[in-house]
Amino acid sequence: MTSSAALSRAEAASLSPGERQDAMANIFVGHDRFTEAMDAIKRFHMPVNGGRPDAGAVGVLAGESRTGKSYALKMYAHDFPAYQGEDGMIRPVVYVDMPSEGGFRSVLQAVADALNVPHTKSMDNGTLDKLIRGALHAQRVQLLLLDEFQEVFDTSKKAMIAHGRGFLRKILNLGTLNILCAGLLQTYEQMAGDPQLTGRGNLPYKIIRPYGWANEDEKKLFRLLCDRFDDKLPFATRSGLRREAIAHRLHWVTNGNIGRLKTFIYQAGCLAINDASDQITTVHFAAAYDSIIPLGSKFHPFRDDMSRAPVPKEEKDRVEIAANGNALTKQVG
């Protein structure tokens, strides 16, 4: 696969259609939300620059889906690869994606697999739990990253929450590592209401938010983000994504969510490649929105004036949360 990042704009535009499609699908844009997430993870892992890893605390990285939490966690874990020690494998940072099905047993299996702990179907949960804790200690794990943790702390699964709480507490009792749980905003709310967890390091947290538009600083950051995407697109000319008229519409469609922004640009970009266009135009964005427009919607951001645009429900929810003084508006770090 050819990386368009190493090519000039003209060279990237001359790639085959499939290569250009891959280039768009694999675009990574460094942005302030990613930097915030990485810095928060680093401070939780190593609170003192040049110091030692912290241990015995649980923290939370929370935010809406597709705001870049998982990517940051994976990148951080990638910076601390496993290596062969004198007595076996050493895994300083371990990333685990929590399964959405299978109950607490599947959670244990996911953690065991990340640590390369062998297990069988006949093995009971207590034994597997003990093996996991033994591996965490033997492999000198400093930081355990548990992604999609809302699958464990789900109010509709009270038994799962009880098992998850006990699992975290037993690991923290080792006194050798920290645990960072990442998930939706509700994840923090559920964990913050549990004194058994807040008592383990005061539950430090970081909320990763989508970009706003009403705030001028947020608007500038979002337009800069659009510009960085534009800079990496495999087209002969820039698509003008930073222009306020275009960026405003992109923000409305994606609600300032970087994951959705990337997907929507990709969808419009595919249409532009099919048209042999030198850039993504509003015609392509309009056609891309046609395929995702909510049923019954009477507003089209790429055909109607933005003065007619309704406030997206998610934006209303964010305003309501801020107005109510919800704890999630208080960012740490």
Results as ranks from 00 to 15, higher is better:
A6Y: 12
A6I: 13
A6V: 14
A10H: 13
E11C: 08
E11I: 06
A13W: 00
S14G: 08
L15V: 07
E19C: 06
Q21D: 15
A25M: 11
I27F: 14
H31Q: 04
D32N: 05
D32Y: 01
R33Q: 07
F34A: 02
A40S: 04
I41K: 03
H45Q: 00
V48P: 00
P53I: 03
A57Q: 07
S65T: 09
S65G: 05
K69P: 02
A72L: 02
L73Y: 03
M75E: 14
H78P: 09
H78V: 12
P81S: 15
A82C: 05
Y83G: 10
G85F: 07
Y95S: 13
D97C: 11
M98N: 04
P99V: 00
P99C: 00
G103P: 08
L108W: 14
A110C: 10
V111E: 15
A112W: 02
A114D: 06
L115T: 11
L115R: 09
V117Q: 12
H119Y: 13
M123T: 06
D129R: 11
K130A: 14
K130N: 15
L144I: 13
L146T: 10
E151W: 15
V152I: 15
V152G: 15
K157C: 07
K157Q: 06
I161M: 13
H163M: 10
H163W: 12
G164C: 12
F167V: 00
K170E: 13
L172D: 02
L172S: 02
L172C: 05
G175N: 05
T176M: 04
L177C: 12
I179G: 03
L180A: 09
G183I: 05
L184P: 03
L184S: 09
M191C: 06
A192R: 14
G193F: 12
G193K: 08
Q196M: 11
Q196D: 11
L197F: 05
G199H: 10
G201T: 05
N202W: 10
P204W: 06
I208H: 07
I208M: 04
P210V: 03
G212C: 09
G212R: 09
A214C: 06
E216T: 07
E216M: 01
D217P: 01
K220D: 04
C226M: 01
D227F: 11
K232Q: 08
F235H: 01
A236P: 07
I246T: 10
H248N: 12
H251K: 03
N257H: 08
G259R: 13
R260H: 11
T263E: 13
T263S: 11
C270P: 02
L271D: 08
L271A: 08
I273H: 05
D275Y: 03
I280P: 07
I280D: 02
T282P: 02
V283T: 10
A287G: 03
A288S: 05
S291T: 15
I292Q: 10
I292G: 08
K298I: 06
K298T: 09
F302N: 04
D304I: 06
M306T: 12
E314F: 10
E315H: 13
R318T: 08
I321S: 11
N324R: 13
G325C: 15
N326C: 04
A327L: 11
L328C: 06
